[in-house]
Design a protein around this nucleic acid. Structure first.
Lengths: 344, 344
DNA sequence: GGCATTGTTTACACCGATGGAAGTCACCCA
DNA sequence: TGGGTGACTTCCATCGGTGTAAACAATGCC
């Protein structure tokens, strides 16, 4: 395969000039640039990225650590991050963590080996007491979600409390008073489940309604559809009356809808259902699902932007590192068929 | 950050000995190995992967070019490939092609730049007349699916004809005789749509049933749910009687079920529905979806294995390149609620 | 015309590991 | 004791680019 030296010889210039042309250095005479580009073309030359990375110390590859792409939320998030990265000429190395602690610890070690410039990490298994593991990693890290907070790291996440409160209010506005929650986690005290629960509770309290613990649907495994159906079944089996459901993600909501419909309950007439995430499924479920759009695209773009800035800061000694940011993307309630009209 | 030379100095050995220890070369005295490992530990040394890749010419990174991870089929496929790759210590660089020709051409150029050792490619936009683009790429390529065939390339795919025939037979066995097809493509003469259609037609012909063109639901865009609903609507609007549906993937099937249910048709009583792919959605749709499991995990593992073998062959001049293979993974019909019992 | 300035190109060291060959050493056998 | 053998270690070139500094050319200004 042709090297830059071959191109240089072919074009009758130095290797460095070829390098300059290819890396967009502005001070190259047009005729020279053309000669080089013709030579590149004639030889079918492609730059050797590994040499470039090795020498420049910058790979242009962003690591993305997520639990599992098969879960639509993460698949769609990955698509957004891939497209945000690509719009800046970056590539993405995906590191699936499988919801395991070891998987997440392994993902954190990857960038130290130099192949990726920085990491976008959506933790699911590490807990708050592991936050110190995120200090002094030696590379830029952007955290997604609320599973884990560290004052030394950049965060990009959504407005969980506002979202859950808006979802609950939507059902309350329609006169519903027996609103179940699907997706409660025992283990967690600060993650998105707690924040979403806090939003739910705030909405109820604002109207002077007590939380009925029989309405809390627990799901200590991943938020898959099957667990949504199970948690919904447990709530219904308790005998409590249910006329609304706030599920902590769309998969849980769709599982819950399945369980409700199996038991002959009509959505939204008998029970209104709201999910979280606005995954594509929610537009085609039966009925279509009202859901909280967490601003996934915004999250992806902001995360990539922050990472790029940090990478630049590390390379440029004159730059002053700015303080870690906490960015909350805008959320939006998307009303579909699974919730009653507000007056109903 | 520490380099191998630092470790060597610290341990009082040569750089190459450190390299030998770290890459598992067997002829190293235990005491030497220990000294080296202690030095590695004390310095917190991590090998610089970019230098290693650069020098060795092998990155241990596999490229995966798929249209879009947000589509559950590809998200789940990517998970399987990531896990197959990881089980061999390989990493995966995902190159989303967005169902576009340019995206796919760009993906084909990526490995020439040296960052990935080979490519697993699931084409969706390139057509058979582009097959020559796959010759002499200069790196190992494994193709998934039937969009594109080339005698010079390894293929791993599923038993499309058998799958469609089994799906159709399931409905025929239940006495259905007006079976719609969802997902027909005008543009294509040899891709999976045509193969699946061929299986459908074979099943009908084996029972002496004529294909009724009004039952063919066309979908010239991606096989998303929305298009399934649209195609189903078009078939129903033609006024033809429908008592069964074979959809060319699960997303189309779920979209079709949505349209059927919206029009008051009961599944499976009035219409039996079968999909393709066995994505997770199909286990939680209402009703749950009978579908053809294409053997995704097997496809992923075989594809990674073939790629590894090809990479090894390229590096070892004594190895003789074996002929390109065409591997068909086993398919399996997964019966769920959307189809009637065979006697019904 | 001389000199400073800006623009364009080049020479060369260097990034950090690995491959291959060569060197050293201990040990065994005749 | 000399030579051979295998185990272990080192030396040195090398992968293919990029950064730095310096050479060289063109332009502008007084």
């Amino acid at each position: 395969m042709a090297t830059m030296a071959d191109v240089a010889r072919h074009a009758g210039v130095s290797v460095k000039t070829v390098s300059n042309v290819l890396s967009g250095y502005p001070h190259v005479r047009d005729t020279t640039r053309d000669r080089v580009l013709v030579a590149v073309d004639e030889l079918g030359y492609e730059i050797n990225v590994t040499a470039k990375i090795f020498r420049s110390g910058r790979s242009g590859v962003v690591g993305l650590a997520v639990p599992e792409l098969g879960q639509p939320y993460f698949g769609e998030l990955a698509d957004e991050i891939l497209s945000a990265a690509r719009s800046h000429g970056l590539q993405v190395l995906i590191e699936p963590t499988g919801f395991t602690r070891e998987g997440e610890l392994a993902a954190l070690r990857v960038p130290r080996r130099g192949l990726v410039d920085g990491l976008i990490f959506s933790p699911a298994a590490l807990v708050q007491s592991d936050a110190h593991l995120l200090d002094d990693l030696g590379y830029p890290l952007v955290l997604l979600g609320e599973q884990l907070f560290s004052p030394s790291v950049d965060h990009v996440t959504m407005r969980n409390i506002d979202g859950a409160r808006a979802a609950t209010d939507l059902l309350l506005d329609a006169g519903r008073r027996h609103i179940a929650v699907i997706g409660m986690l025992h283990a967690e005290t600060a993650g998105s489940a707690s924040l979403r629960y806090a939003g739910y509770r705030q909405a109820l309290e604002a109207r002077g309604i007590q939380v009925d613990t029989r309405l809390l649907g627990w799901s200590d495994e991943a938020w898959h559809r099957a667990n949504g159906a199970r948690a919904m079944a447990a709530v219904l089996d308790s005998g409590v009356r249910v006329d609304g459901v706030v599920a902590f993600n769309d998969a849980l909501a769709i599982g819950a809808m399945y369980e409700l419909q199996t038991r002959g309950l009509a959505i939204p007439q008998d029970v209104g259902v709201v999910g979280f995430d606005d995954i594509e499924d929610s537009r085609y479920s039966v009925p279509t699902l009202t859901t909280v759009d967490p601003g996934r695209r915004e999250i992806a773009h902001v995360a990539v932007d922050i990472l790029r800035r940090r990478v630049r800061e590390r390379l440029d000694p004159s730059a002053v590192d700015s303080a870690p940011v906490l960015y909350l993307a805008g959320m939006r309630l998307v009303e579909r068929e699974s919730t009653p009209r507000r007056d109903g």
